[in-house]
C-alpha cells in the first residue's frame, strides 16, 4: 500500500472542499432550514404525527439521507471526472499506485465530505425540532456505510462519464426520484396498498427505513433487511470497482 500517495490524493481532494468551505457549509444549512419551513411548519402542522413521531422530527433521517446520498455521488463523481476532463489523470496512471489506492483516496474524501454535510444537517435539525437518537451506534454505522457506498457509486459514475451531461444523468434521473419516492418525507404505510408493493422495489426505501429506525425505533421494513440492503449495495459497488481495476475500463487505453 502506498499510504503516502493515498494521503496526497485525500488531502488534495479535501483541499478543494475547504477552498469552498462556506459554500459547502452554508448550502446544506440553508436547504435544511427551507425543508423545515416548507415540510415541517407549513405541511407538517396539518399532519401532526407519523407512527407516533412528530412530523418535523420524522423527516430528519430522510433529509440527512437525501443529502448524504446526493453529496456522496456528486463529490466522488466530480472528483474523479475532473482529472479526466483536465487531462491530469495521466499523473494517476503514471504514478506507482494501483487503482484501489486511487479509490481509497478519492472516494474516501468524497465520503468524508458527505459525512460532514450529514452532520451539519443533523445539527441544523436540532435547532428546529426535538431530536432523539435511540441507537446512536447504529445511526453512525448506517450513516458511514451510506456515505461510503454512495461515494463508491459516484466514483464509478465519474469513471463511466464521458462528458458533464453524463455526470449529471444518473444522479438526476435515477437517484433523486428514488430518494424522494423512498419515504424521505412519508411513511410507506401512508401509501395505497398497490404503491406500497411497488415501493418495495426501491432500494433506497431500505436505507431510509433502517436509518430512521436508529432514531425512533420505528421502521417500514425490518432493520436486518435494511442492513442487508446497504451491505448488498456496498458489495455491488466494490465488485464494480474491482472489475474496473482489473480491466482498466475507460481509464487506461
Amino acid at each position: 500500500m502506498n499510504l503516502t500517495a493515498i494521503r496526497a490524493m485525500y488531502v488534495s481532494e479535501m483541499a478543494r472542499f475547504f477552498r469552498t468551505f462556506m459554500q459547502s457549509f452554508l448550502s446544506p444549512v440553508i436547504s435544511t432550514s427551507l425543508y423545515f419551513v416548507v415540510f415541517g411548519a407549513a405541511i407538517g402542522s396539518r399532519i401532526d404525527e407519523v407512527e407516533g413521531v412528530s412530523y418535523g422530527s420524522f423527516i430528519v433521517p430522510g433529509l440527512i439521507m437525501l443529502s448524504v446520498m446526493t453529496q456522496g455521488i456528486s463529490n466522488a463523481s466530480f472528483g474523479i471526472y475532473f482529472p479526466k476532463f483536465t487531462g491530469t489523470i495521466y499523473e494517476l496512471l503514471s504514478a506507482p499506485i494501483n487503482f484501489l489506492e486511487v479509490v481509497i483516496g478519492f472516494a474516501g474524501a468524497a465520503a468524508t465530505k458527505a459525512l460532514f454535510i450529514g452532520t451539519v444537517i443533523l445539527g441544523t435539525s436540532a435547532l428546529f425540532v426535538e431530536m432523539q437518537i435511540q441507537r446512536p451506534l447504529v445511526m453512525v454505522l448506517f450513516l458511514v456505510l451510506t456515505c461510503v457506498s454512495f461515494a463508491l457509486f459516484g466514483f464509478i459514475i465519474g469513471i463511466w462519464a464521458k462528458n458533464f451531461e453524463q455526470l449529471q444523468l444518473i444522479p438526476l434521473l435515477v437517484i433523486t426520484p428514488l430518494v424522494f419516492l423512498g419515504g424521505s418525507f412519508y411513511s410507506i404505510n401512508m401509501l395505497p396498498p398497490i404503491w406500497q408493493t411497488i415501493t418495495m422495489f426501491n432500494p433506497v426505501v431500505y436505507l431510509i427505513s433502517g436509518f430512521r429506525w436508529s432514531f425512533f425505533g420505528v421502521a417500514d421494513v425490518p432493520i436486518l433487511t435494511s442492513l442487508l440492503a446497504i451491505g448488498l449495495f456496498q458489495g455491488l459497488c466494490l465488485l464494480a470497482v474491482w472489475w474496473i481495476f482489473k480491466t482498466g475500463w475507460r481509464i487506461r487505453k
Binding site: T4, V11, T88, A95
Partner: peptide
C-alpha cells in the same frame, strides 16, 4: 506530457508537492 494537463485552480507549490506525494516520496 505533450499537452498542458494541469489543474487550473491549484497553486504551483501545491501541485508540485502533490505529485511528489503521489509517487510515495
Amino acid at each position: 506530457p505533450q499537452e498542458i494537463h494541469l489543474e487550473p485552480f491549484s497553486r504551483v507549490w501545491d501541485t508540485v508537492r502533490y505529485t511528489r506525494g503521489l509517487f510515495g516520496k
